[in-house]
Amino acid sequence: MALLTMMVVATFGILRLGNLFAVVILGGIYSFLMATVLVVLDAVDVAMTEASVGAGISTVLMLGTLYLTKVEEAAPVRRSILPLLIALGVGAVLAYGTFDFPPFGVAEAPIHQHVVPRYLAKSVEETMVPNVVTAVLASYRGYDTLGETTVIFTAGIGVLLLLRGGRKGAGARGSKEGGA
């Protein structure tokens, strides 16, 4: 609970600060807090991915972008109340919806009843992998992961095309951000 509250504090820091460098670093802190929360919630694989990708690669990409653009956010020209109202309205509806959720941490919740017991019972026998997350990701849903890899490949091509191609009169500015 303390970790989750710290995440909320980091989020409001992101919301208030005008210096984008501080915002990006706070985003990294936020990702590490999220990874810690995921460890507490038994999602160790997700936590490792979040710590390396969310706090590592994302922060590096953000800092690279800041290097190529600007660090200070301009003061808002007009303050509109509409986004705040929309956000609060959406939040109220969502919070109302949470009361229909099954309580946290209970083994009788519907999510634990259907497919998962079979995976837990059979995955070692069928795939020889003790980690069920790995078994499902790489074996049972291997095509899903293949599609995911395709998405990353496409994104990488897109980044390269955006940063390198289509630059007619820009002179000799090589693309400095290639590691996607």
């Binding site: 038994d42 997700v46 999510i111 634990h112 998962v116 995976y119 837990l120 997350v133 499902v136 849903r141």
Partner: peptide
């Protein structure tokens, strides 16, 4: 064990 499907 906690539920592995959301993790995937």
């Amino acid at each position: 064990y906690s539920n592995p499907l959301p993790h995937v």
